[in-house]
Simulated assay, not measured.
Amino acid sequence: MFTSRLTLLWLLALPVCVFTAFFLMPLGVVLISSLSTQDGQFTFAQYGRILMDGYHWQVIGVTFRLAILSTLICVVLGYPLAWYLVRIVKWRNWRRTCVILLILPLFTSNIVRSFGWMVLLGRTGLVNDALLGAGLIDRPVRFLGTETGILIGLVYILLPFTVLTIGNALARVEPALEEASRDLGAGAARTFFSVTFPLTMHGVMAGGIIVFSMAISAYVTPALLSGGKVTVLAMLAFQQYSTVFDFNYGGALSITLLVFTMALIGFSSWLARLGAQDMKGN
């Protein structure tokens, strides 16, 4: 018994040390820096500077608006695509091809993909040319330097994560449960909302949390597609570290982003659990 416990402790020691060294310690350094002045004195002044200034709330609003919209759009687009791959595609080779095409962009740097969207979304880019050719617009639309352009880039980059997580959840749903619902007189829509969707809610939540976490901390895509005209919190923190060299203020921005993110994720998870319980109850 003692030997098995000692072996277990040794097995846990390495991951705990890695987690402490590469996650907890850097986070602790940032937290201490955010609560200190340049002279090393303890202070909450950096947080007061953030929370009492309207500009910072505007940046926080833009950051969370882009992250929430990216998450919602990815879930709305990702669920039908996951349904197509799991439930509709019967030919295994075609399903594999679709999955490869879906994850292939993930092997490319975000910088390269963002530069690609800069070309596509330009005034003479493919998107404007297509819209002009279809007669949907009379003159080129300005995408770059706007929240719309950033949103398009974020959705393109993050959509595969929702498709994969929702598809995995759909694959685990037993078809017999849906067949039983239809045999009891439920239509396709009621079967989906009463049986299928609640059983895949964990996949939707997992994909949404992944997308939201990556979107809210994204720097490269907003920085390139905004052209400096739209600022998110990650860009503001990076400027403090790389240009101004105000590590205390940059640390406070980073911790503020982390706290707001965790609070919103926790709140949305609580709402999702309540919704899932109501669906199962009905």
Results as ranks from 00 to 15, higher is better:
R92Q: 11
T108Y: 14
V62P: 01
G122D: 10
H56Y: 08
S114M: 03
S109A: 14
R123W: 07
Q46P: 01
G48F: 02
W94G: 03
T20I: 01
W10E: 12
V16W: 04
V89M: 07
V86P: 02
I32T: 08
S36D: 01
M118L: 12
M118G: 08
G40K: 11
R92I: 05
I68N: 10
L120W: 00
N110R: 15
V75Q: 15
G78A: 05
G116L: 05
W117H: 09
P80C: 14
S114F: 03
L85V: 12
L27R: 05
D39N: 11
P80L: 10
W117K: 06
L12Q: 06
N93V: 13
G122M: 03
V99T: 03
L81P: 07
V62F: 02
Y47P: 06
P80K: 14
S70M: 08
F115V: 04
S34C: 02
L69Y: 02
T108G: 05
G78R: 08
N110L: 12
F64V: 13
A82H: 09
M52S: 07
W57H: 09
V18Q: 00
Y84A: 13
T37V: 09
V119C: 00
T71C: 13
L72N: 03
N93S: 13
Q41Y: 02
F19D: 03
L12K: 12
V62R: 01
L27C: 11
V76I: 14
Y84Q: 12
I32A: 14
F107Q: 14
L12V: 10
R95W: 04
I68S: 11
I60Q: 00
W57K: 09
M118W: 03
L102N: 14
T108C: 15
F23N: 05
A13E: 09
R123G: 10
G116F: 09
T108K: 11
S114L: 01
F19E: 02
A67S: 05
G40H: 00
L9C: 05
V30K: 02
L24F: 13
G61S: 11
L66C: 15
R92H: 14
F115Q: 07
P105E: 09
C74A: 12
A45T: 03
V62N: 02
Q38G: 04
S36G: 05
V59T: 06
N93D: 00
L69F: 04
V18F: 09
C98Y: 15
V112C: 04
L31P: 05
I73P: 08
L81Q: 13
V62A: 12
F42Y: 07
T20M: 00
T124Q: 09
I100W: 15
S109H: 09
I100K: 10
S36H: 11
A82F: 15
R65P: 05
I100E: 08
V30Y: 04
Y47E: 00
I68C: 12
V119K: 00
F22P: 07
W117N: 06
W83N: 15
P15H: 09
L66E: 15
G61M: 11
S33C: 10
L81R: 02
V30E: 01
C98T: 08
I111M: 10
R96D: 14
L72E: 03
M25T: 11
H56A: 00
G61F: 13
M25A: 06
I73W: 06
G78C: 11
L72W: 06
M25Y: 07
Y84D: 03
